[in-house]
Amino acid sequence: MEDKEKLEGQQTGRREFLSCLGSALACSAAAAAAGAITTGTVATTAAEAAVTEVPPNPAIPGYDWTQHQWAFGVDATKCIGCLRCVEACKKENNVPQDAHHFRTWVERYVTLEGEETARVDSQADPVNIAASGSESEYRFADRYRDAKVELAFFVPKLCNHCTHPACVQVCPTGATYKTEDGVVVIDHTYCIGCQYCVQACPYGARYFNEETGVTDKCTWCYHRITKGLQPACVEVCPVGARIFGDRNDKQSAISQFIQNNRVSVLKPETGNAPNVFYIGIDKDVS
């Protein structure tokens, strides 16, 4: 799948850059000599990072990425925690079948009577793994059966494909970048596996694949959406809790979702400006 994300335009960008290598070398040496290593970096904000070095349109037949602006919606009031999305994503994207690598996951928030804050778990919690019997089968254990539950809901999580992605900002090689149509992808043939992006993501959306030696994360199934299909998780959701579409199309499901609801995003204080919009979540969700 990852090869599909490798966009040929980036190669051109590299060749252009190579021609400037001589001057870059000199500049870097001078900057270090002046002790201005950090100041040069500080001056670049996350917002600027998101717009740098975008490669030209990918060679996908019949697809023009300047014509789309993808976004994702989550209606937490509909999610039933069946975890079919997690299973579909793992299969579709060759995600390692264990409890430590997920492109998408589902969180359960349960507030018991007399408690101030919610108890949170995901399908990766040891209790839930014990209930399913395997790390590669997903189930929420009925662990609150005997408790008095005041409030309970599920929250699907995935990469937020931020407008100002912190992961793109910190990538030392530019292997991860934001496409013109609003998706943050990774060139797995260029990633060095330093995991700086894993650290920088405030949402825990990235993981390091020990087998391939590179970082991975949700791409909104870029290989599917560029062919007019829905992401695998959206496709399999039985209740329509996941909404995906093109914001350039005002009649699309996602445009309508954002227009007709009071949506919120996760951790807005980071300044990352996420593009996954939620309804039906409360203060405990972060």
Binding site: R14, A24, S28, I37, V170, P172, I192, G193, T215
Partner: peptide, 29 residues
Amino acid sequence: LGHPERAFNAMITPHTTSAFAIFAYAAAF
């Protein structure tokens, strides 16, 4: 690194917004 053989990618195409991109140059210097 997951791919140490690609370490020079950070020198060949340093991503200027990364706090880590300049390391190889600074260290070499």
